[in-house]
Design a protein around this nucleic acid. Structure first.
Length: 170
DNA sequence: AACACGATTTCG
DNA sequence: GAAATCGTGTTT
């Protein structure tokens, strides 16, 4: 097999997993078999039904149902009619949390990440524990981690808009 | 059935 | 600064 991260890791709280993913290796294996390795450099945490910026704040819907699965699944959704956002679900079943992969080394922006890695809605529900197309492995030595407010969520209100749940490497 | 809008990116 | 572009959630 490979050295992919296990179920125990993804089952932890999103506020542990989001910063922990920084520096880790995202492995993408394309249909023809070629493999690419990227270093995760920017993430954001979306936590549960209280977090007004989280899609789960209004409960279970057709779109966000994967967020209610156990940690380790991918949650993909389309934004602005043209960009796919890739999220790693965390926590246990019926604990709706996810980490948005905002950036990789040399790839800045969540929409650019999915476009570059050829990831779309067909990856919604993909299981990082068993997938042959994509998974994550322990990565490089941790460098300095910075935290700040999340991007593009002005609609969530003063408190949730300012919570420092965006994490990135220098 | 109709409408409003978004966890963004790109162009002028 | 503003357009592009469409699935989803909400309202009618």
């Amino acid at each position: 097999m490979d050295d992919r991260l296990d179920s125990e890791f993804y089952s932890r709280d999103v506020l542990y997993v989001a910063p922990a993913l920084l520096g880790m290796k995202l492995i993408r294996c394309y249909p023809a078999g070629e493999k690419e390795i990227f270093i995760i450099s920017e993430t954001e945490a979306y936590k549960g039904t209280e977090d007004l910026a989280c899609h789960a704040s209004k409960g279970l819907t057709a779109r966000n149902r994967i967020m209610f699965e156990r940690g380790g699944h991918l949650y993909l959704y389309l934004i602005y009619g043209m960009y796919w956002m890739m999220n790693v679900v965390t926590g246990g079943r019926d604990v709706p949390q996810a980490v948005l992969i905002r950036g990789l080394k040399e790839i800045y922006g969540p929409g650019r990440v999915t476009r570059r890695l050829q990831i779309d809605g067909s990856f919604n529900g993909e299981d990082l524990l068993t997938s042959r197309k994509i998974w994550i492995e322990k990565g490089i030595k941790k460098t300095q981690i910075t935290a700040g407010p999340r991007i593009g969520i002005d609609y969530a209100g003063e408190f949730w808009k300012n919570v420092p749940w965006r994490f990135y490497l220098k």
